[in-house]
Amino acid sequence: MQNGNIKHIWQLLNTIPDPEIPVISIVELGVVRDVNLKDNLYTISITPTYSGCPAVTAFTNDIKKCLKENGFRNFKIKLVYAPAWTTDWMSKETKEKLNNYGIAPPSKIVICPQCNSKNTTLISEFGATACKAFYKCSDCLEPFEAFKCI
């Protein structure tokens, strides 16, 4: 039963979208590191993405809201710092979701999400959110955002 609840919590967390990139969940993003149960208290460990990402506060509030709505009362959210979050934790499926949404997924070679060209140029290392850089495709000429590889 208790293990079932942990699985259920993971499933619930997987329904919480990233506040800035709603096509992927906070689980897919790699923010949720662990869910465990000790002395009747569930601990959800999360790790910040970029230090300056304002979404971390939003994650915390969304998790609280979601779990409360689903009948969980005895839980706490713990912020863990090590190991530092990395884009390597994103699965291939998650990267595909980003690509379909128009954001080039984290990768050494940045590929245009519109025309799949590798002929792309960095415009700025900084985009509309902490996690994204700004690129331009030199073939289809469309500007696009790319997830920073860290």
């Binding site: 970029y50 230090s51 300056g52 990402c53 700025s124 900084f126 700004f134």
Partner: peptide
């Protein structure tokens, strides 16, 4: 672009 870059750096520093 620079405005966004400088403000983004600011956010990272606040986070750190």
């Amino acid at each position: 672009e620079e405005d966004i870059a400088l403000s983004n750096i600011s956010l990272d520093l606040f986070g750190q």
